[in-house]
């Protein structure tokens, strides 16, 4: 464990807590893409298949349970909570996220480190996580009015993988044989997808104006 990875995990944890806080306290999911939340639930379900077989540390297991629990409960809130689901804008959240899942699964079947079920599913989760934010970014551009909590959620979610890149650089220089191109490329692509959001997020923060993405 290094400071970059710990900061990344804490930023990731903060992003899910911000979203859960928003949905649970104000009972609204306005501006939140259910599609992205479903993709993230699938990312964690396929990445943490080893939660019962490979014990790495208490920290690792606890964090996996938190990410699994929070992502599935957010999907439940938006789909089934009698108050929250009324604020879900399904006419705007129309990204066909199946078009993301299929290419990721195909790519995982061809480009992976080992051809085993767990490894292919793990690689699928990496590719899927890289593009999981797209429905949310599309929704933000459509709805225009981005409330603070949703903006902070997307910012923290993008920042965590950026911190992981520093973690991979650190591990590359401190651990022998630590070469994982698939993880690194997926992580860089994921972070780059947030580039324009980060730009407008900092602009709005600097000029102290409401965050608005160009249509």
């Amino acid at each position: 464990m290094n400071i970059f990875r710990l900061a990344g995990d804490m930023t990731h944890l903060a992003s899910v807590l911000v979203l859960l806080l928003k949905i649970h306290t104000i009972k609204s999911c306005a501006g939140v893409s259910l599609k992205t939340q479903e993709l993230y639930a699938l990312v964690f379900a396929t990445r943490y298949l080893d939660i019962v077989t490979d014990f790495i540390s208490v920290y690792n297991t606890v964090m996996k349970l938190i990410f699994l629990g929070s992502s599935f409960s957010i999907v439940w809130y938006i789909r089934h909570h009698r108050v929250v689901r009324r604020s879900y804008d399904k006419d705007q959240d129309t990204f066909r996220h199946y078009l993301l899942m299929i290419p990721c699964m195909l790519l995982a079947l061809f480009v992976h480190e080992k051809f085993t079920f767990k490894e292919v599913m793990w690689t699928f989760s990496l590719y899927l996580e890289a593009v999981a934010i797209l429905p949310q970014l599309v929704l933000l551009q459509r709805t225009r009015n981005i409330d603070n909590l949703t903006g902070q959620y997307v910012f923290l979610l993008g920042a965590y993988r950026g911190l992981y890149i520093f973690n991979w650089i650190y591990r590359y220089f401190t651990e022998p044989h630590f070469v994982h191109w698939i993880t690194w490329i997926a992580g860089v692509v994921q972070t780059l997808l947030y580039a324009d959001f980060f730009y407008y997020y900092f602009e709005s923060w600097k000029n102290n104006v409401r965050l608005q993405l160009p249509a």
Binding site: I56, P176, H177
Partner: peptide
Amino acid sequence: TDRESTHDEL
């Protein structure tokens, strides 16, 4: 040599 893995990451 045991290959360092990123599977110990979240």
